[in-house]
Design a binder for these strands. Sequence first.
DNA 1: CGTCCGCTTGACTCAGATCAAACTTGGTGG
DNA 2: CCACCAAGTTTGATCTGAGTCAAGCGGACG
Lengths: 198, 198
Amino acid sequence: MIQIMIETFFSDARTATYAGGQTIFHRGSPTAWLYRVVSGRVRMVRGLSDGRELTVATANAGETFAEAALFSDNYHCDAIAAAPAELQMAPCDRIRARLTHEPELALILARYFAGQVRDLRMQLEVRTIKRAPERVLAWLKLHARGVPPTVERPGSWAKAATEIGLSSEAFYRALRDLSSAHLIQRGTRDVIVVCENN
Amino acid sequence: MIQIMIETFFSDARTATYAGGQTIFHRGSPTAWLYRVVSGRVRMVRGLSDGRELTVATANAGETFAEAALFSDNYHCDAIAAAPAELQMAPCDRIRARLTHEPELALILARYFAGQVRDLRMQLEVRTIKRAPERVLAWLKLHARGVPPTVERPGSWAKAATEIGLSSEAFYRALRDLSSAHLIQRGTRDVIVVCENN
DNA sequence: CGTCCGCTTGACTCAGATCAAACTTGGTGG
DNA sequence: CCACCAAGTTTGATCTGAGTCAAGCGGACG
């Protein structure tokens, strides 16, 4: 995310550590902190009525999460440490005060949210692809970085599967099919996207 | 959307009219205008590689669209008039200039985008529901307004079906099932959500 | 060394997509 | 006012592919 904003917001932040699987905040609880991941990984999930859960976002080291808390009285999803995580916490009310007095911060924040909207729309687009292999390939392309385009394993692929709305079995089968079709190359902890069309 | 922002942005807007089905802008073309719908309806769609299309958002009378254009060089989806539409157009570059000079506008915009993020996440949540009737019911609850909670027909239900990732047939079948289960009541051009649990 | 978790594969089931066909509705023009 | 047409709606039959259950493999870690 945008570095200037991070540094200004977290200049006077507290730090906290969480064990893997531990809940950082619950959906519905009043917003108090804006977070940044120093190390580890945090998943934003929404529990569904049937007991399953949906990963709506994942924050890796260096990234912030719960920015929407700045404009809401309650968190609107759960945050769970996907691995032992060290977090910085900046108080929401102080940031809100600064946003009104330092206008350039608000513009940076608006730009950040605009990017989020674009990302979420792309995620929605991926969801409309019915065939699992094509869906997974589209998701991989979306997340590939570097040359050659590579996707690092996000903790476990099974967790990623929930992010694209597939069962873990269907996800693994899709990886196998894509690999045997030479559209991707699988490493031990990453995947290289071979095809570059479309 | 937030009225103050609308009025300030569109105080010096041009107007244009489009026929139903006409394209307002294409994905990839350079951003020039922020739009507001005066009358009619506009669908934001992304063409998929297999020829189908995804409705990522729908703007009704009074609503704005293409706000993300303010922070991007290119539109990232197509805008198509779903019906004969009258639109206001505000030039992006002028708005950008005002955002830097009038800080309170940036804050309003950030708040607006934060709301969009929340809505998109809810849409993603709806998409994770596999059974069509439950999925449609969740979508209806999300869009119901007033007492009793009512959803007006968005042009045609078939268009709405693409928004939730169902074929039109599956959508109509879901409406029938929900209706016969007395969870909704169908009118000629609206649907009343009867159940209020969950 | 044993256990847990992630990964992998197979068999079966079922719900949604698809294809096909009728019906309704609204609008247009004669 | 009515014939006609287009688009939206409704229902049925069939197919397909992802979900689910089940079982086995492998590495990490205590």
